[in-house]
Structures are given as structure tokens and as C-alpha cells.
Design a protein around this nucleic acid. Structure first.
Lengths: 206, 206
DNA sequence: CACGATATGGAACGATCGATAAATAATATC
DNA sequence: GATATTATTTATCGATCGTTCCATATCGTG
């Protein structure tokens, strides 16, 4: 696509910045959820006319799909950076993940909690497809975490009787709960205390 | 009110069973969330005409408020029964709570997860009042759990350096995460594994 | 420079939303 | 038996929904 980028296509150039519009849409969907966010809300928040949004994203669900990818490319990359850092031990990686979760989920400038867990927690049957998109992202993130734990186990960093799949699911469950807690107003310190208690159950190798 | 029950009021008697209607409404809101559940859906599911629902509950939010109370009086009472059981030790009470959560959240005949955590995870500003109702319920449930842990601590059932508030918040966070996991398809065994990990390293008094 | 391709924005579309009106019905009360 | 009260049912309301239409604009290409 760098070829098409260098040689602009025919037709009227898009005026609005799609990434900037997506960033604003991320916040709105994160805050209110897919079903409670109307196209009128999105128009007001992004400053882009409805027809222009439709030209770029096809429909509301298409916009939401792009929003998911935008969140994954920004917030999730930051959140999971410790998991993808080979310089960290397995324990340090998970500790970093939970600490970033505590910080990110309670950050003042963004909606509380995690977009992936709350933006489409419950939807109508007509929106099942977008709910599946989010669920697939959550399942992929959990699989990534479990893979990291499995590599740690293979390197002797976990207790021999420890099951990385169970541990990974447990850590992920705690993170999901931290998101709910954050949306209910939990402070970063409360979230860090929860993270610490989860890490207190770490199956260290002896 | 037994007096008004014995001597029926003037006026046309209500035909539909409000508890039965509420039970059906509980399931629909639990499955789809407040925002994605329309009055037309509720009419179809309960078999009660819209005007009759309005006569009984005033408006959609009023119906939802009644649904919250119905859920609290049925599912929540069952879920928290171990916490209210004086015959159980503090550890046994929490263990029972988490086991019931694992079972209830993944029960085949009802929507997955917990109504309290998913029915209004994200709403529009116009629905802020009902979101607050649910949040207040969650906060009250967490306070109940913490009180139980505090009584256990006072009775010497927790380690001296253990903070019942932090432990209670941790247990509650795990339960909230289990609800998200259940909605993503986690089995009762997976949920029980998570519960078991949460109970590991229980701060027992020595 | 004309043409084709694509974007923009305001207006408007059909469908659905939550809620109410009006006629009728079913009770208790006097 | 008339009256008052409350519920039911069907139709309808104004508002909002997601989406498209249409006139216009802005580019690249031959």
C-alpha cells in the first residue's frame, strides 16, 4: 500500500483525519458502550458528518471494527508491552502487565476500565457480530499471556506443578475484575493492592 | 401490606403476574443489557402489553429498577448465602461464595455471568440513574463481603497482618472477572480453577 | 479542459424508539 | 345499580435511530 500512498488515488481527497476521528470514537464507545452510542453522538464528538463517516467505514459496525483495531494498536500495545519484553522474567512481565492495568484503567484522562471488556458487554442479537470481534480480541490476548507463561514454564520459571493455562486465566480474570472495579471508581492504589494480592499467589519455582 | 392484600383495592385487578414478568425481564436485560433491550423486546418476552408494563412500572427505567430488586432477591440471595451463614468459617464462607459464583455464572439455563456486572456496563448519559442503581448494589455487596471478613478477623480467623478491606476487594474483583470469563464461554471447571487460585495462600491465622 | 472517481454536507428516508391516549373492562364501594 | 378506581388493549404520538440521496466539490488522468 505504500505504492498507493505515494501515488494518490483519483477522486476527492478525504478531508478529515481518520486516526483522529477514530481516537475520539474510541473514547465514546469506551465510555457509553456500542449500543448506547448513536451516530449522532459520533458526529458531534468527531466533528465529521455522518455521510463522511459512512464513506470511510461503511456503517456503524464497520466504524466500531476500526475502533477496536485502533484501541488494540494504541492502548493494548502499551498494556501488553511487558508481556512482549524478552528482557523481563515471566514474573516481572506479569507484574508489569498488572501494574500497567492498574494505572491505565484508572487514568484520569480516559474512560475508566478497559475498552475491550466494557464496550460491548451486552448487546442485541443484531449486534452479535461486533460482540464476537471484541470477544475474539479478548481470547487472543489471553492466549498471548498463556503462551508467555508457557515459555516461562519451559524455562523453569514456574513451579513444576503449575499449569500456565490456569495461571494465565487467573491473571486475566483478575484484570477483567480490575476493569469492573475501575469503572466503579476504584483508585489506582486499590487496583495495585489487588494486583499485589494476585501476584502473592504466584507459583514461583523453588 | 397484608391488610391491603386481604381487602383488595378498588379498580380492575391486574391480570398478569408481576413476578413472572420480572423473571422474564431479568433474563432479557441480563442477556442483552439495558440499552440494547427495547420495550418491544420486553413485550414479546413477557407477553404483557406495553401499556400494562407502564401501568405497573411507570417507565423503562422503573421496570429495570424492579428487575434489579428481583435479581437481588433471587440470584444474589443464593450467591451470597454462604457469606450470611454463621455456621461457616470465614474461609468456608468465601470458598462457598466463589464456588456458587462458578456454578451460577456458567449455569446452562440462564444467561452467562452476573447480571449485576453486565446489564449496564456502559450506558448513555440519559441512563446514568439506572447505572448508579446497579453500581450501588455492587458496592453494597462488596461492603457485605468486607464486613464478613472483618468479623472473621475480629474472631481471629485471619492473619493479623491481613487487611479485610483489601482481601474483600480482591475476592470481589476475582468474582467480577469470573463473570466476564463466563460470558466469554468459560466452563464451570475453568471458573472453579480460578476460584481455587484465588483461595490459595488464604491469609489464615496461625 | 473534460471526464471519471471519490468525498462532503445537509436533507430526508423508513424503521424503531419509549411513551401516551382513548375506549373498554373489571373490580370495590356506597 | 351507579360511581369511582384501576387495568387492558389497540392505535398513535413525537423523537431518534442508522442510513442514503443528491447537489456540489476536489482531485487525478488522458
Amino acid at each position: 500500500m505504500t505504492e498507493t500512498k505515494a501515488r494518490r488515488r483519483a477522486g476527492r481527497p478525504r478531508v478529515f483525519d481518520t486516526d483522529a476521528a477514530l481516537d475520539k470514537a474510541v473514547r465514546l464507545f469506551w465510555q457509553r458502550g456500542y449500543e448506547a452510542t448513536s451516530m449522532a453522538d459520533l458526529v458531534a464528538e468527531t466533528g465529521v458528518a455522518a455521510a463522511s463517516l459512512y464513506a470511510a467505514f461503511d456503517n456503524k459496525a464497520g466504524l466500531f471494527a476500526a475502533v477496536i483495531e485502533r484501541y488494540a494498536a494504541t492502548f493494548s500495545v502499551h498494556l501488553y508491552a511487558p508481556i512482549n519484553d524478552p528482557a523481563l522474567s515471566t514474573y516481572e512481565a506479569v507484574k508489569g502487565l498488572l501494574e500497567r492495568a492498574a494505572s491505565s484503567f484508572s487514568e484520569p484522562g480516559t474512560p475508566a476500565g478497559c475498552f475491550m471488556y466494557s464496550a460491548a458487554a451486552a448487546v442485541s442479537p443484531a449486534s452479535a457480530a461486533i460482540e464476537c470481534l471484541l470477544r475474539d480480541k479478548r481470547i487472543a490476548a489471553e492466549a498471548l499471556l498463556i503462551e508467555r507463561l508457557q515459555r516461562g514454564a519451559a524455562q523453569g520459571e514456574l513451579a513444576a506443578n503449575s499449569d500456565p493455562a490456569v495461571l494465565g486465566k487467573f491473571i486475566n480474570t483478575v484484570m477483567e475484575g480490575m476493569s469492573v472495579q475501575a469503572r466503579d471508581g476504584a483508585t489506582i492504589n486499590e487496583l495495585l493492592s489487588i494486583a499485589k494480592m494476585a501476584l502473592d499467589r504466584w507459583p514461583a519455582a523453588i
